[in-house]
Amino acid sequence: MNTTAVPTPQSNKPTSRYTILDREAVKLKSVLGRWETLLALLLIVVFTVNSIVLPHFLDLYNLLDGTQNFSEKALIALPMALLIICREIDISVAGTLALSSVAMGLAMQAGFPPATLVLVALAAGCACGLLNGVLVTRFGLPSIVVTIGTVSLFRGLASVVLGDKAFTGYPQLMADWGQGYFFGIVPREFVVLLAFAALFAFVLHATSWGRRIFAIGNNPDAARFSGIAVDRYRLALFVLTGAMAGLAAFFLTGRIGSTRPNIATGWELEVITMVILGGVSIAGGAGTIGGVLLAILTLGVATYGMSLANIPGIYMTIVVGILLLATIALPRLLRARRVSK
């Protein structure tokens, strides 16, 4: 029996060209849909508007000097991002900073060498973070409740020690780091911030330590069953956040030259706004250090522009509050809209 081969029909659609174009379109849509891309565009818009409206905005010296207004907060935002990715939060960072600054003042009065004051600040910050971490991991208390309590504790202790006085007369070494420049133009604080941002980005996105943080944030129970020491990581992140708050205290105290009871009041809101605006999910398990850094720069440029325009600081507080609400609510609204379709 003879059989004849039946030719398969040939497709009339061009294959290679349209396939490549479709792939490129999908990639472009993916890039444009990323939160970091939107933040970069927002930063460009804010920068462009300020440069058009404000005549002295583009002065390089003023721009770099403006980084001092957010560098200390940004140092705290970096570990806060890791903590929120891990489904925890630390409201007590401003109180930790205040108590660390008071600890440096007491150490200075006790005759500690100037070079050791940064170690005193780091030790005080670590102690505050350790207290938070132990209460959360060992006693199973919610971190938001614990840190709301400890911020009052830390701030209260600082106020009791200082009373109506202030620590002044800090050594020149602290002023050199808080007010000093590299190459006569770049603030030292900003360089330190960029170095820590690179370090935190490497740890979070390129190491097993970072992958475990994401795993804990996505599903703590599954991470625990897979052999990850969940509580140990959480405790370490609380201590790290406290240490960075202590480092921020060293820079801030050196920059303003004094320790007062109201130092860094309200900073916790601005730090958390930097993190959430940077795309870190308040529910945990998602976020990037790059996004947080873009949010820091965007808020910094906006604040700098408002200060040049002589707009009162209270309006910036309103803007921060609106941004915090919007960045929390907007993703949920968009998700609910997609589900309804």
Rank of each mutant, 00 (worst) to 15 (best):
G242F: 13
G242R: 11
G242H: 02
M244V: 00
G246M: 09
G246Q: 05
G246N: 09
L247K: 14
L247C: 07
L247P: 12
A248G: 02
A248I: 01
A248N: 08
A249Q: 03
A249L: 09
A249G: 03
F250I: 13
F251E: 06
L252S: 01
L252E: 06
L252Y: 09
L252D: 01
T253I: 07
T253F: 04
T253R: 04
T253S: 13
T253Q: 13
T253N: 06
T253A: 09
R255L: 05
R255Y: 00
R255A: 10
R255K: 13
I256V: 14
I256G: 10
I256D: 00
G257S: 11
G257D: 07
G257A: 07
S258V: 14
S258F: 15
T259A: 15
T259W: 04
T259D: 06
T259P: 00
T259C: 15
R260F: 06
R260C: 06
P261S: 15
P261T: 15
P261E: 13
P261N: 13
N262K: 13
N262Y: 14
I263K: 03
I263A: 05
I263F: 10
A264P: 04
A264T: 08
A264W: 10
T265V: 12
T265A: 13
G266V: 08
G266L: 14
W267K: 05
W267N: 11
E268P: 01
E268F: 07
E268A: 05
L269R: 03
L269Q: 07
E270W: 06
V271W: 09
V271K: 07
V271L: 05
V271P: 13
V271T: 10
V271D: 02
I272E: 09
I272R: 06
I272C: 10
I272M: 10
T273Q: 09
M274R: 10
I276A: 02
I276N: 01
L277P: 00
G278A: 10
G278Q: 12
G278T: 11
G279D: 08
G279P: 00
V280P: 04
V280S: 13
V280N: 05
V280K: 08
V280D: 01
